[in-house]
């Protein structure tokens, strides 16, 4: 049962992602991206990474997508829909991407990844994740807080309007 669910989520994720980069209206593109991000959270759940799935929904869908919608609405122009959203080189870009995907196909089937099956158990779980964050990975964990501060200050510096 879980396998069918995974394949349904995976296929819909692919569909949402493709729709996101191909539709004409940028707002629709953002909506498809939000659905794709929700599907990714579903994938995380299927990999027994429940905490990560919840964080994905909260931060990505809840935070980043809100940011995107704000930015889209703040930079909208009348008559946007008539402007070409995709450049003339879309055929060339499509060939490049398809080529790289072909490379990936070769690599995946040449590797031992295709035969690996799920080991028994529940994965590392929330306990193990928390312990790792505060012991082995304590330095990057603290470092990220400086990163967030820097991004915040940067956004304010560039975004604020002089009174």
């Amino acid at each position: 049962m879980t396998e069918t669910v995974f394949y349904i989520i995976a296929v819909s994720l692919c569909v949402f992602a493709v729709l996101s980069v191909t539709v004409k209206d940028v707002f629709h593109s953002a909506v498809w991206l939000a659905l794709a991000l929700l599907s990714v959270a579903g994938i995380f759940l299927s990999l027994d990474a429940a905490f990560l799935g919840v964080i994905q929904v909260l931060v990505y869908v809840g935070g980043i997508m809100t940011l995107f919608i704000f930015a889209i609405k703040l930079t909208a122009r009348i008559g946007d829909r008539s402007i070409r959203q995709v450049s003339q080189q879309s055929v060339c870009g499509g060939i490049v991407s398809a080529g790289i995907f072909g490379v990936f196909l070769i690599i995946i089937y040449a590797n031992q990844w295709n035969d690996m099956m799920l080991p028994p158990g529940q994965g590392i779980g929330l306990n193990g994740l928390g312990k790792a964050l505060l012991t082995t990975y304590a330095l990057p964990f603290e470092f990220i807080s400086v990163l967030l501060l820097a991004a915040l200050v940067g956004a304010i510096v560039i975004g604020k309007v002089k009174q």
Binding site: A17, V21, G93, G94, I100, F104
Partner: peptide, 29 residues
């Protein structure tokens, strides 16, 4: 589900994103 299917999914997303990066004119897209 073999691991390869997850990697395939990830590779597909990577290539879709790459396609978008190479062809989009709109900075937000």
């Amino acid at each position: 589900i073999p691991l390869g299917h997850y990697v395939l999914l990830s590779a597909f997303l990577f290539c879709v994103g790459l396609f978008g990066v190479l062809t989009q004119r709109n900075a937000i897209r």
